[in-house]
């Protein structure tokens, strides 16, 4: 794993300031200055497993949402349609060992162990905005690697126009899969140019720690300019295809959830407005934030959709 120095500008933005200051204190204490007993700081600040992971390009200069909020407010219908229940139920998922099947229009297909994929892809940190189709948003410091880097290792052929991702199907553990809330397994997809865009990210961790199970461990997609449901969790299969894959929410209600699902305040969901978003963790008197086109990533990604009518291909 490559260990570069962390950018000094961003690190204070990522960690809560008090923990950030206390961490320095703890390190001093560990170095022999005997003030340990005077420190109320959480010990976890010291042992954060991936605190040294470098900040990658495209990481934003935003204040992160509190970890507890991100880890306790999850849409994970495989476990439950209730955001709190899914947080608890997901703990039953066994994430190691974990294999990923690669299929379709690529030279290197087969079954890959996640550990081998991780060895080939050094970790970096990306602080991204995350906007759910339910009109709430958060900022998450993800750990992982660019999706493009991983996909290129499978050598997709010229016929690979789309990439399809599939979540684990295991109704004994993922008990929400016994209900018909969605068609199982969950499938998501990207056009190949979207998938190869440097913003598209594979996450294995967040907040300098391994990804909590409710947040999609051990491997999830993060596409910050699209609604959250595109960012599929617990991926077990990647398929390169020539045709557009049928995706879970799109199949469930095609008039409400498009294949592209780009964040767009101008295109309302048929049943609610998308022009504003509730910021998670904010006080009850904080007004909603105005949603930005492509979730604020328009400068980077708008060119992908130049010739498209975004109100029709939503």
């Amino acid at each position: 794993m490559l260990i570069k120095e962390k950018s000094p500008i961003l690190s204070s933005e990522i960690t809560d300031k008090t923990i950030f200051i206390n961490r320095r204190k703890i390190i001093k204490a560990a170095a022999g200055i005997s003030i340990t007993s005077m420190l109320p700081a959480p010990a976890s600040a010291l042992v954060k497993k991936y605190a040294q992971v470098p900040v990658g390009p495209y990481s934003g200069d935003f204040k992160s949402t509190a970890f507890e909020d991100v880890a306790s407010y999850t849409n994970y219908y495989e476990f439950s349609t209730n955001k709190k229940d899914s947080t608890v139920l997901a703990k039953n998922l066994k994430t190691s060992p974990w294999n990923i099947t690669v299929e379709g229009e690529a030279e290197k297909t087969g079954i890959f162990n996640l550990e081998d994929i991780l060895k080939a892809n050094p970790l970096e940190e990306r602080v991204y905005r995350f906007r759910c189709v339910e009109a709430w948003s958060m900022v998450v410091p993800w750990l992982g690697f660019p999706l493009a880097a991983m996909l290129k290792q499978f050598k997709p052929t010229a016929k690979a126009k789309f990439v399809e991702f599939t979540t684990l199907y295991d109704p004994e553990v993922m008990i929400g899969q016994k209900s018909k809330a969605l068609g199982w397994p969950y499938v998501e997809g990207l056009r190949i140019d979207e998938a190869m865009h440097p913003l598209a990210f594979m996450a294995t961790g967040m907040y300098d720690e391994e990804l909590p199970k409710q947040n999609g461990a051990p491997l999830r997609l993060v596409v910050p300019w699209k609604y959250g449901f595109k960012s599929i969790k617990a991926i077990v299969k990647i398929r390169f295809s020539e045709t557009m894959p049928g995706t879970a929410w799109n199949k469930m209600a095609p008039s409400e959830y498009g294949f592209y699902a780009n964040v767009n305040p101008e295109v309302a969901h048929p049943r609610w407005s998308q022009s504003r978003e509730r910021i998670l963790g904010a006080s009850i008197f904080t007004p909603k934030r105005k949603t930005e086109i492509f979730n604020g990533y328009g400068d980077q990604v708008a060119s992908l959709y130049k010739r498209m009518d975004l109100s029709k291909q939503f």
């Binding site: 507890e68 909020d69 306790s72 407010y73 709430w136 509730r278 963790g281 009850i284």
Partner: peptide
């Protein structure tokens, strides 16, 4: 629950 900030990540929605 509101006063004690126990309404979760999206307190307005919970309320």
């Amino acid at each position: 629950a509101t006063i004690q900030d126990q309404l979760g990540a999206n307190p307005i929605q919970t309320l």
